[in-house]
């Protein structure tokens, strides 16, 4: 039985789709709007480039920004090669059998493990067992382990979306397996791999739990000296300002949040640029 005429139906469908989108987008806009409106007033060159003063109630957040940048860099350094290599192995080399299926299942599930679990894992393995102590190295490794499943999954999808015919053409011209991967598959999967990687790492940059026990310093009135040093980091600094230090100006908290969100937005924009740049050229 049909009790709606198609035009009414069309309107209802459109409206519900539109409203669902609004429900998702509105809170994001609201949150960003509040952060910007309340935090913008403290943003200044000085805020971005000087040390905190007076028990972090004044001054800048320079060491936290630097710490986060170091951590992101370190994470990228460890996670990108390992992620791409294992994705290549899983998608191009391994035979499909129960073992690889199990590995794939494990990777998918690892992506869903709460970040605090990674934090404790990092504490146990890197900080204590490998005696790295709370350090940029231990923190980066912990974050890398956390983002690896996401990077591997994104990279595998990117590799598998490269048409089979590219591989066949390459093989039929007498290329070896590695040559085929290197010249006929990887270049066309790279945009997808990079976007997935950048997105996952920008998410990691905002995490507090994994760095809590592995690197984050409550207050460090100087920049870290080496990768074996502790470091301040934006998300943890924000947490400290909001809950651990009494009488902090609310604008300072919002300003810190704004810098963190800004960094993440910039990285995500970067990913979007990579994607659109390659989409123009991708034509299959």
């Amino acid at each position: 039985m049909r009790f709606l005429n198609p035009k009414v139906e069309e309107k209802i469908v459109f409206l519900s789709l539109f409203l669902s989108t609004l429900v998702i987008v509105a809170p994001v806009i609201l949150v960003i709007g509040i952060i910007v409106s309340r935090g913008l007033s403290v943003i200044s060159w000085q805020f971005l480039t000087t040390m905190p003063r007076m028990g972090m109630r004044a001054g800048g957040i320079f060491p936290a920004i630097v710490g986060t940048v170091y951590l992101v860099g370190g994470t990228l350094l460890f996670a990108l090669p390992v992620g791409i290599f294992s994705a290549i192995y899983l998608s191009e080399y391994s035979k499909r059998n129960w073992l690889t299926r199990l590995i794939e299942l494990a990777i998918v599930n690892l992506a869903g493990v709460p970040s605090v679990v990674y934090g404790l894992f990092g504490l146990g393995l890197f900080v204590v067992f490998l005696r790295l102590g709370a350090s940029i190295l231990a923190g980066s490794l912990t974050l890398a382990v956390m983002v690896l499943p996401v990077i591997i999954t994104a990279s595998r999808e990117a590799l598998q979306s490269v048409p089979k015919s590219f591989r066949e053409v390459s093989y039929s011209l007498g290329a070896t397996r590695w040559q085929t991967i290197r010249h006929a598959v990887l270049p066309h999967a790279l945009p997808g791999i990079l976007t997935g990687t950048v997105l996952s790492i920008s998410r990691a940059a905002g995490e507090t739990a994994p760095i809590l026990f592995t690197v984050a310093a409550f207050y460090l009135p100087r920049l870290p000296n080496s990768i074996f040093d502790q470091a301040m980091a934006l998300p943890y600094h924000l947490y400290v300002l909001s809950t651990q230090v009494p009488n902090v100006r609310i604008e300072l908290q919002y300003g810190t949040a704004l810098v963190l969100v800004g960094l993440i937005v910039i990285t995500n924009l970067f990913a979007a640029v990579i994607r659109s740049y390659f989409r123009v050229r991708k034509q299959w």
Binding site: S165, F166, E168, V169, S170, S172, L173, A184, H188, R281, K282, Q283, W284
Partner: peptide
């Protein structure tokens, strides 16, 4: 050498 049924240029 092999020429496939559908044209298969690489992009």
């Amino acid at each position: 050498g092999m020429v496939f049924a559908l044209p298969t240029p690489l992009p």
